[in-house]
Design a protein around this nucleic acid. Sequence first.
DNA 1: GTCGTTCTAGAATATTCGGAA
DNA 2: TTTCCGAATATTCTAGAACGA
Lengths: 355, 355, 355
Amino acid sequence: MAGVEIQPMAPMLPMVPPFVGMPAMPRTPEQHLFASLSKLPKEKDTEKSMNEAAEMLNNAALALKRRRCLVAVDEVPGFVRTVYTLLNVCDPEIISWSDDGTKIVIKSSDRFAREICPKFFRHRNFNSFTRLLNMYQFHKVPSSRRESKDVCFEHPHFQRGREDLLPLVQRKGAQLMREELVARELLEHSALGAVAALESALQPLHPHHEAPACAADSNGWMHRMSDLEAQVRVLKAENDRLKQLEAERDALKHQLKSQADLIAALQAQSTVFGALNSLAARHRDDSVAEVTDDDSKGDDAPNNADINEMIHQMSGVGAMAVMFGVLGNQPDLPALPAADDHPEPEPSPKRQKTC
Amino acid sequence: MAGVEIQPMAPMLPMVPPFVGMPAMPRTPEQHLFASLSKLPKEKDTEKSMNEAAEMLNNAALALKRRRCLVAVDEVPGFVRTVYTLLNVCDPEIISWSDDGTKIVIKSSDRFAREICPKFFRHRNFNSFTRLLNMYQFHKVPSSRRESKDVCFEHPHFQRGREDLLPLVQRKGAQLMREELVARELLEHSALGAVAALESALQPLHPHHEAPACAADSNGWMHRMSDLEAQVRVLKAENDRLKQLEAERDALKHQLKSQADLIAALQAQSTVFGALNSLAARHRDDSVAEVTDDDSKGDDAPNNADINEMIHQMSGVGAMAVMFGVLGNQPDLPALPAADDHPEPEPSPKRQKTC
Amino acid sequence: MAGVEIQPMAPMLPMVPPFVGMPAMPRTPEQHLFASLSKLPKEKDTEKSMNEAAEMLNNAALALKRRRCLVAVDEVPGFVRTVYTLLNVCDPEIISWSDDGTKIVIKSSDRFAREICPKFFRHRNFNSFTRLLNMYQFHKVPSSRRESKDVCFEHPHFQRGREDLLPLVQRKGAQLMREELVARELLEHSALGAVAALESALQPLHPHHEAPACAADSNGWMHRMSDLEAQVRVLKAENDRLKQLEAERDALKHQLKSQADLIAALQAQSTVFGALNSLAARHRDDSVAEVTDDDSKGDDAPNNADINEMIHQMSGVGAMAVMFGVLGNQPDLPALPAADDHPEPEPSPKRQKTC
DNA sequence: GTCGTTCTAGAATATTCGGAA
DNA sequence: TTTCCGAATATTCTAGAACGA
């Protein structure tokens, strides 16, 4: 049973035009007009004033383009057409016109969701259907009887047998166009309507009809503006944070340099000591034995008079103190004595380099 | 065939994001907030409208305060209790707990609306039930199987057998006060921030009366735009400057690496020298004493005491070996517990500066 | 083979989170805070100023609401999760990971559209799938062989076995939200942040009345706006790149500190050795010459000449002490070119890592 | 005032088509 | 040409708002 693989989507709507997620189609002559209009100024950008004019014209064209629904006024939105078809096609026990032909009556929302929805839409939720009805300005009508499960929706321009009114059922977003639609209703039998619409569209400064469109544009810009400002805010915060990297980098560089100096000094020291000690080592073989003996019996007895003598002869205890004082500047050597097991010091591989 | 009704396009529902745990309900800061709120308008009672605004805000604050006290009572809301009971009472074929007891599963929304709703509520609409669930912060969760028509809801504190958590399931309006506390925790420190913000928010009340014509607003926009552009310019300059940090960082890294090599070499050297020199270590006790005396008279370095202490503690080859062992050990730079464990954390940076 | 077809869906999507048409969930504390704030004045809107205040506060709430995805920043978008699951579940002959696990390879777009799409999405068009991939910043990768029909997509954070990276695969529009989250993290420690957030939230409250006359004025603005947006985009990208400098800086600092500790230890060692060896110094005058010879043949350090000169002049412990003093003081030796010019870089990285 | 019920709208994602770079 | 984006519509879940008890 799982292998049946019914596909309720594609083949089930042979005659209903597709409408789902379909973008508007700016193919009307008006669109072409303004497309050409928008290209017009580009032909002559030699003059600054002409540039500005071009900009304005271009903008007008863009604004009109954005209001595509205007030119689509003659078209029936896919969803509306689908619902209208639905009412002629489907089981009247599920969905039907009301008696007076002004309302949609869904007698069984369950069955509608289960049986109708997947055939005409991409879902099987009655709520999605009602959401779209609301989007297209349908309104729910309370049932006459309270206990009835029927669900009724109506739209002033959605009536049985009045297919001519269907273009007036428009989505909410296209709401602003409705006044113009009303105007067009008056002139709907002549091309004058289109001309009027074009005129009004071409005169964006006209106070009456143009205001709503302007509002829409402004709102869009406001969004962009807000986004921009937010982004700039974020960027500033980030940059503030990043700017301290510079200071820290300088500190790091300074430290690095100091350490380099120290290393150089240590290297020199080690080199000298290495050389010195390698020579001294050969003279010390006997003393090593002595030390070992002494060590075996006790550490506390410093009875090597010779060495003490040498120490006393050092060019001065003061020099020693100076040395320690200077070096003591590098202070802490914190827990150096704190020690744990010390592994065998590995033979230094790089020692020969310093030698 | 029609009965099979595979639904390959069943809706994929959103994932419910992790819920924010409810705070314990500290009340003091809240009172501060509202105290400041109520005081806010009073600061400017030169204006009549502001006085009225003050009154209103104050009233609102008081009302909310009262409401909060009501909410503070740990009672299980009626709806929550009803749903909890419902799950124990009703046909599991209609509504039941999920297997893990964290979710409500309505297996048949139709039957639920028809049979359950009228028994427990005053309606027979599944949507009304879901509306209330949402109101109480339940969230819909996707059912595991796509073809399933089950509807699942969950609430972090609504679990099977956890009747003790039910008081935490609160209506949106009430919940709000507690989450406000969370918000205030984020913006904590004082209500000063909020107050300042609110002041700044209420500030434009005065000049903004009625007349904001297009020109004025456009000017405002222009100002904002100019500001934005200036900010972007500044940010770009800053970023350009910051970008060179990358190169410098690489240089630093290279230097650091080289120094690490040097240090390693020096370390190895020192270890060897330590072994060689350790033989002579025991002869030093008296000289150390002298050094200490000298040091006492001219003490320029702060850490001489430490060094002297170390020297004092050096009693022979054994101690030396220990010390060198520690130093030679340092395999890992990060390890270096001697430095890190130093009681006061701040000296090490200072030391690096003094170097 | 096609005959298998046993319940391909039920076990396949046990936990694929739903993603279709998911509304955001405005449950952040901030949102509730401002929601409640916005409700404050609404309880009495007799005064016009109060109405405006209400509007403003409400707008603040709405602005915050718009940033809802902020809280969802840690979550894996439904589509991303679905695609990830898809790759683990579906026939590798249709869709699979590339060999290195960094790319998606669709071997048969036809079969994908026919067999996979309807199971996971609400359509059966391969183009819709690619549209969504693009929306989530996946990019098509040209196939290695021109004749290959394979279609490859990749995303820097979409890799096999790296489920942890999936939250970084975000929809295009949600990108700025993530950065706002960063900003919030930065600002959430101070009341200043709160003020900034509130102010920014209150910024977009103008958009109501500036409808008219915007058409002409906004022409130039649109260009400026576009430029601004482009600049901000660039800046954001740059900042993203720069932000990683912070982490690297911290690593450098840590290394530097460790090295400083090591140097200090080595210095102490050398100091002690200096003291110790100074006892034997007088016995080695001849050895100095030897050291000089050695140095002449292998000169790694730039300052060895100077040091050798000093060594030549060393006549006893006093000279040693002077040397130590100078070296220990080390003022500003120019930056250790020996380290920079170090020829072999490879041993050190390994060592630092092991450290 | 609070809660429940109902209808509608908001907001985010998904799907489609055309078009731009 | 290919690849990717814009924009309109669709779907889903949640929230707003009005009204009544």
